[in-house]
Design a protein around this nucleic acid. Structure first.
Lengths: 116, 116
DNA sequence: AGGCTATATAACCGATAAGATATTTAAGTG
DNA sequence: CACTTAAATATCTTATCGGTTATATAGCCT
């Protein structure tokens, strides 16, 4: 895992506008216009944010006529999680919660066990 | 979850020196001197980094004579993970790995953690 | 008090970030 | 070709960052 990749990923995530863009992209692809709309920011400002996300590898672009739809690329987020995982033992409460979550998910595979 | 907290957390994580400091602190408390030593940076530079980490709530300080030992505070990292979790469905491969990991951890069954 | 050690603060610098507005490029349409 | 729409680029401004050196503060020890 390169340090530069983590730098870029965390720096990209450090901006609330960019996080909001990512959240929106989690619902599906979106054009620059569509991404600009919900914000009180100029189109060039959003284009800049997109460029930051793109450089961090968090977003990829395609083409649809004049449009340049953005798509979420989550791989770098995975690397960020990998980094944060090293602190797992300091997050015992969360860890327990996650454990419980996975337990629940596994239970879903089991035959119905009545109320849980 | 406040946006400012996430801003501060991710911004703090965006610097490799600060990530290295956190990694070191994961091994236990350390003084400013001890944290400065491994880097080719001045003591004030490290103090500044610590202040950034402290403002983000990732580090807390105590006192030991003239020393101000730093301690890792992982809670904000937990919130960062919470944010990243929303992209889990875009990280199916990782998710499977995490599942396997937790399976392993449960089998291992660590003793209660103390810091030293 | 004087001196040593550990850390923080101040002042400064160059680079970068985040925003704006204005303009340009690219692509489609009449 | 002119016009419209979508997005990118240029230029500028202000603020913050990350580093420096120099200095100040705080706490211990004689």
């Amino acid at each position: 895992m390169q340090t530069d990749q983590l730098d870029a990923t965390f720096a990209a995530l450090a901006d609330p506008t960019r996080r909001a863009i990512l959240t929106r992209l989690a619902e599906g692809e979106a054009t620059v216009m569509e991404l600009t709309e919900p914000f009180d920011l100029s189109q060039p400002a959003i284009s800049k944010h997109i460029k930051v996300l793109e450089k961090a590898g968090l977003v990829s672009r395609s083409r649809d006529a004049q449009r340049r739809p953005c798509k979420l690329e989550a791989r770098p987020l995975g690397e960020a999680i990998d980094f944060l995982e090293q602190y797992r033992r300091f997050l015992e409460v969360r860890y327990a919660k996650l454990d419980a979550l996975l337990e629940t998910l596994k239970t879903v595979n089991d035959p119905p066990a009545g109320t849980g």
